[in-house]
Design a protein around this nucleic acid. Sequence first.
DNA 1: CGGCCGATCCACT
DNA 2: GTGGATCGGCCGA
Length: 202
Amino acid sequence: MISHKLPSAYYLSADVVGMARDLLGKVLCVNTGNVLVSGIISETEAYAGVTDRASHAYGGRHTARTDVMYRSGGLAYIYLCYGIHSLFNVVTGPDGIPHAVLIRSVIPYEGLEMMSERIGNKEVLCRHTDGPGKLTKALGLHFRMTGMQLAGDIIWLEDRDITPEPEDISVTARIGVDYAAEDAGLPYRFVWKPSGQISFSG
DNA sequence: CGGCCGATCCACT
DNA sequence: GTGGATCGGCCGA
């Protein structure tokens, strides 16, 4: 069987905004306890290195938590937000450049039974995975998993040739970053709203 | 060591 | 639309 897994080299692009756009339609897979769950990425935000006031690495801040952002692309950066939610980011870019893409929404894809269990045995709908804190709960991603390789066999991304139509993608300012002053309005958020049936060629 | 705060979510009104 | 939950990280003293 063909592997659709994205290779480590995929994550090395220095264009973090382009990466955020490109991740739409990719499949985020998580395998814990020998159970696979996955979702199709439908909303992302770019966080652009040390110059981005909204980034945890702004101004070169480099702490135990943010160290993973500075490493070569292809790692998971997962952190606790508001004391409750784990938020999942894809670390991108070359070594030393702390770029990351926040995954804000996915479309439930595989492992619906496991996802249902995780969200309280409800029927799994898009509304259960359409926020950064919600999708990590459904997929079983936890901030303790930060630093994991994305080309490994616990967390990885796949290219299943799911390609968003350009007209179905909107670009907006990022959510919840008002504190970032002049960077709050940057067009770094990408939202894919499929207008028709999602098609698969792979 | 203390205090503040957050890349959110949900229950209420 | 509003406010509370909830706690690790970060910074200043």
